[in-house]
Design a protein around this nucleic acid. Structure first.
Length: 226
DNA sequence: GACCAGGCACATC
DNA sequence: GATGTGCATGGT
């Protein structure tokens, strides 16, 4: 029995859990991922790399209008052809190649069927995705969580900024360290991981909006929302 | 006209 | 391992 304060990790984990409740209370369910099918989720996950979602929506619509949000249709196109549809998303040449890389991977390993991926052990599947050129940790985890409903926590730029601003991680901290903080603090619950990450993005966008609203906005007071 | 956005690969030290 | 750079559009 000790009256000493609990270890830092204990406090951090408590706050990680409490933040979810606060965010959910404030914003409610976010209903992610904004897509009709798991295949569309994956296309969006690649297109959104370092890009505003609004721009991705335009690219997705171009593909959707041409009925290309289906493996067989998109896979029939060359990278150059794909790039012509996804221009609004930016980095369109490299992203077209990345989409082709994924489509080739899906064809070779899963007969072009996204649902077939879900049968593989999570760790193996994650490593497979990471082996595809153009799919890094965040894109892989977004695919696992939002397309395949696997209990994996997605760390993105908003998550990183949140942890750094709260002094939970150094800004040089690794993706894995930040992911581990969430996953060791929470039960592996797919629906909750889905919601939590979406809420962090919502918070980040809100924060940016208010910051842009005026130079007198009291950022210092808004920094901590717990 | 800057500056930014839900990354990633690659070169170099 | 850490750090720097190219990739590109559209909104504020």
């Amino acid at each position: 029995m000790s009256l000493l304060p609990p270890p830092v990790n204990f406090r951090k984990k408590y706050i990680i859990r409490a933040m979810y409740l606060r965010l959910f209370e404030a914003y409610g369910p976010q209903r992610w991922w904004p897509a009709q099918t798991p295949f569309e989720v994956i296309v969006g996950a690649i297109l959104v790399q370092n890009t505003n979602w609004q721009n991705v929506e335009k690219a997705i619509k171009n593909l959707s209008d041409k009925k290309l949000l289906v493996f067989s249709s998109l896979n029939a196109l060359t990278a150059v052809q794909i790039s012509s549809y996804i221009r609004p998303a930016g980095y369109y040449n490299i992203k077209a190649k990345r989409l082709k890389n994924f489509l080739t991977f899906l064809a070779q390993h899963y007969d072009g069927n996204v649902a077939c991926m879900a049968a593989r052990p999570l760790k193996d599947l994650r490593n497979e995705l990471l082996s595809v050129n153009g799919i890094g940790p965040e894109t892989a985890d977004s695919i696992l969580l939002y397309a395949l409903n696997k209990p994996v926590f997605v760390v993105d730029a908003y998550t990183r900024r949140l942890l750094v601003r709260h002094g939970f991680e150094k800004d040089t901290g690794s993706y894995q360290a930040m992911q581990e903080l969430f996953m060791s603090s929470l039960e592996p619950d797919t629906a909750m991981f889905n919601e939590y990450h979406a809420l962090i993005v919502r918070l980040g966008k809100d924060f940016r909006k208010e910051k842009a609203a005026g130079p007198d906005y009291p950022l210092k007071d808004k920094k901590y929302f717990l």
